[in-house]
């Protein structure tokens, strides 16, 4: 799979946004609340809230097409991962990991000067679902000349 650098990045306190689409190719937006490399596997796991993002959950159930962008709040360094996903209700250990992510991202944003009352409303893992994503390609998305560059792929 992709290297340790990307793996470390997605597990660090970065913002996580999910793109999906329905059968009519209508795009959808959701947020992920925690991501990590699946144990002993070449997939990644992400938690999302079915309460905040029901359309995203429905799309992933329907066709599994997924794009996830990870963005570091301090310097806008961003990567987009594309691939195929499956989705199921999250288990307690996974919810716990997601909650740890929420604590970490709130701390990170507070260190950047954001007020906690402005950070919390966008974060939720209510009705938690676990997305397991098989990554097909990784793109740089940091604003700048390299934006859009593909840096890793399962196909040449």
């Amino acid at each position: 799979m992709f290297g340790d650098e990307i793996a470390g990045f997605i597990e660090s306190p970065v913002m996580q946004i999910i793109g999906s689409s329905n059968a009519a190719r209508r795009p959808e937006i959701g947020r992920a609340m925690g991501a990590w490399i699946s144990t002993g596997s070449d997939t990644i796991d992400l938690v999302t809230s079915a309460w905040q993002w029901p359309e995203t959950v429905a799309n992933l159930r329907e066709n599994g097409r997924i794009a996830v962008t990870f963005a570091r709040p301090s310097d806008y360094v961003s990567y987009q991962l594309k691939g195929q996903a499956t989705i199921r209700p999250a288990e307690p250990g996974e919810v716990e990991r997601s909650s740890q992510y929420i604590v970490a991202i709130v701390s990170t944003q507070m260190r950047l000067g954001m007020l906690p009352e402005l950070i919390m409303p966008v974060l939720s893992n209510r009705d938690p679902m676990l997305i397991t994503m098989c990554v097909a390609s990784v793109f740089v998305q940091t604003p700048g000349s390299r934006a859009g560059e593909r840096i890793w792929s399962t196909t040449p």
Binding site: I18, S21, A23, I66, Q80
Partner: peptide
Amino acid sequence: STADADGLPNISY
């Protein structure tokens, strides 16, 4: 969020 002709999504800030 957008999707291409095949419905493959793309998401960015």
